[in-house]
Design a protein around this nucleic acid. Sequence first.
DNA 1: CTCAACAATATTGTATACGATTTTGTTCCG
DNA 2: CGGAACAAAATCGTATACAATATTGTTGAG
Lengths: 228, 228
Amino acid sequence: MSTIETKPWTSETVVADLERAIHEHRLPPGTKLGEDELGDAYGISRTIVRAALLALSHRHLVELKRNRGAFVAQPSVREAREVFEARALLEPRTAHSAALRMTDKDLALLQANIRDEHAALDAGESGRALFLSGQFHVEIARIADQSTIETFISELISRSSLIIALYWRRRAALCETQAHHALLDAFARKDAAAAEELMKSHLLDLVASLDLHNVSQPPTSLREALQR
Amino acid sequence: MSTIETKPWTSETVVADLERAIHEHRLPPGTKLGEDELGDAYGISRTIVRAALLALSHRHLVELKRNRGAFVAQPSVREAREVFEARALLEPRTAHSAALRMTDKDLALLQANIRDEHAALDAGESGRALFLSGQFHVEIARIADQSTIETFISELISRSSLIIALYWRRRAALCETQAHHALLDAFARKDAAAAEELMKSHLLDLVASLDLHNVSQPPTSLREALQR
DNA sequence: CTCAACAATATTGTATACGATTTTGTTCCG
DNA sequence: CGGAACAAAATCGTATACAATATTGTTGAG
């Protein structure tokens, strides 16, 4: 946990801190997020913690069970499909818009992002690499200058991180940065149509790298899981 | 206000009640939502009210100003454009999916919705008609069996209601139900391509019926608004 | 009379106390 | 020894008290 008690933690900063921890798989799906525990860790009262957990539950990153507590969400196979369905509707067209508005500064930012992701991978910081990989997509929405869509994509990216934690099947890990590289090239050429197509196939590749027909549903209850 | 104190109001029911009131324009944009006031109205403590307001702020229906309180949101022209941009990405394709999954029961529900909207209009209940008109769109997402996208569309519909309250320009009011009728026909024929196109143009018509180039921004501050 | 400074009031922000529910641990009967 | 009933503990749900901040009202000097 973050444990730096010198900071003035607010509801929003706690949300951001927890969201990043979840996104980086430092808090795996299913992790219990006790209110007292979090309050002690951040040095704040349960009031703030509850507001943060409520916010995270609205983003579907945390599941609140009445009188049971908060847990890092465990998206179902169904939900996983839906998330990528939504991404497929939003992201390709957003990449198209972004390509048309792309500035040199934006390009540099995206390039830096890819570089940092490479560095993180080399350093064995796979969590940080995953986070940066997601940021690449959010950044595109920001460049497209569509903050409303950006909010949706940002949520979907974080949820995708949970989905990856649950359903990722081992494969070539470099396909990610390859796809981002190709996108960057299209952006550099201001080729909006190519960017849209590349994003579309990138998302299809992502889904294909998941194991979603598997019946190993994240156990809703231990009882049910062990009764087989 | 709702004032029925015999009900066991929970955070969620209060959110639903307030959201509907906002959607039906009983709580116009800019309305101050005092915590004590709401707590008294519903017969609950500020704790629950705050949770509800927090939820509504996450849906961009309420704006929270630090140490100032909660207000019904006043989407900017910029935000209005973004909301309809997002709807344009999500809804046509969702209508396509819905057409393919449409059952007779679903058709009946949509038909009933249109009928109720007509009835509400005839009865002069324009707020209720607007709400039902929005429900038509949410229902399509539900029929498409995409709950994640449905959540997004539901939020966008509610925000659209605020946008209509602020930027609607007088016009033929029946264009709405006409478009919904046409959609229903396409659904009945299971003509997914037609449904997709009809939804696309319906959304374009909606945007066209708004006055978004107008400079009469909802005043961010009274000072600024009166200094002209 | 105008306006700035200050005081009073109202409202939100946060912490904490207490009650409700669930979970865990123990006991006692079969 | 096994299991159900009960007791204890932990945790969440809600209300309330108090502090922080903003707004409003008043006063007094110029």
